[in-house]
């Protein structure tokens, strides 16, 4: 692939290990004196990946497959143990909607706070803040503390502010499960509309809302145990993920990371039916 023109994300032999220590003092010894950890968790094993400009990639897999680690490394939030990563352009990392929010502050203040964390200049957000309030119908509770606002509000504010950011690469690690079905649909529609109007933005997303992949994504990656085991179309990924969900007899017991919860599963099917 032509490195110069099209590649926006390039990972070369990325390995990420987490050292698990039973006691804090062991961690100190490990860091300063090079003692080996009691247990090493391999989150990513020798992953190489090239993503071109304008590609929309969905990454999914079972619990602890390494999706979150992969996305965090691309975002530049955590650092790989081994390997090289190159990204070109401004990265917009939507990894945790809570990051930057202050529960005691009002919704309006939180719009500014989130924008500040993302590095959006105050002048820009000021121009858009009324627009956001209008669009999200926040008028009634814009000046009450965020903790008293309806449940889906942080997610909606977060997404709205993220989509304002001037960006080349967008990374989303979110299940959109906060606040109910209609909020989830609203978020998905929003992302769809955003990418219709921004064809140059590259997307890497890890979510259990696979329904949206057919409309937004152009490529799918399936991860298992820290390795990308399948690189294909979003439809193929969807089938693989469905098979996986069926295999899991009790989805409720699964930790809620990048995996399906009961609500997520129902939604996926709905999305597909709508097409």
């Amino acid at each position: 692939m032509e490195k110069m023109d099209n590649t926006v994300i390039q990972l070369e032999h990325i390995t990420k290990n987490y050292n698990i220590y039973k006691k804090n003092i062991q961690r100190v010894r490990g860091i300063f004196f090079g003692k080996e950890a009691a247990e090493v968790k391999h989150a990513l094993r020798d992953v190489s990946l090239t993503i071109n400009k304008g590609e929309r990639v969905i990454v999914t897999g079972p619990v602890e497959a390494g999706c979150t680690s992969l996305l965090s490394i691309i975002a530049g939030v955590i650092y790989p143990t081994k390997g090289k990563i190159r990204t070109r352009g401004k990265v917009n990392a939507f990894l945790n909607m809570r990051a930057g929010f202050e529960n005691e502050a009002t919704c309006r203040e939180n719009i500014y706070l989130k924008a500040n964390v993302l590095g959006i200049p105050k002048a820009v957000i000021k121009n858009h803040v009324e627009e956001i309030i209008e669009e999200l119908e926040l008028k009634d509770y814009i000046d009450i503390p965020l903790k008293r606002a309806p449940k889906g509000t942080p997610l909606r504010i977060c997404l709205a502010v993220h989509l304002l950011m001037d960006t080349d690469i967008m990374i989303i690690d979110e299940n959109f499960n906060s606040g109910g079905v209609h909020i989830r649909q609203e978020c998905i529609d929003k992302i769809q509309r955003y990418f219709e109007t921004h064809p140059d933005v590259t997307l890497v997303i890890s979510t259990s809302q696979l329904g949206m992949t057919n409309n937004v994504c152009t490529r799918g990656l399936f991860m298992e145990d820290g390795v990308i085991t399948f690189d294909g179309t979003p439809r193929e990924i969807y089938e693989k993920y469905r098979a996986l969900s069926k295999r899991a007899t009790q989805p409720n017991e699964e930790p809620d990371s990048s995996e399906s919860s009961e609500g997520g599963d129902g939604m996926e099917e709905k999305d597909i039916e709508q097409e």
Partner: peptide
């Protein structure tokens, strides 16, 4: 912590 480990800050 959230800014350190889960956001590009």
């Amino acid at each position: 912590a959230a800014l350190v480990s889960r956001a590009k800050y």
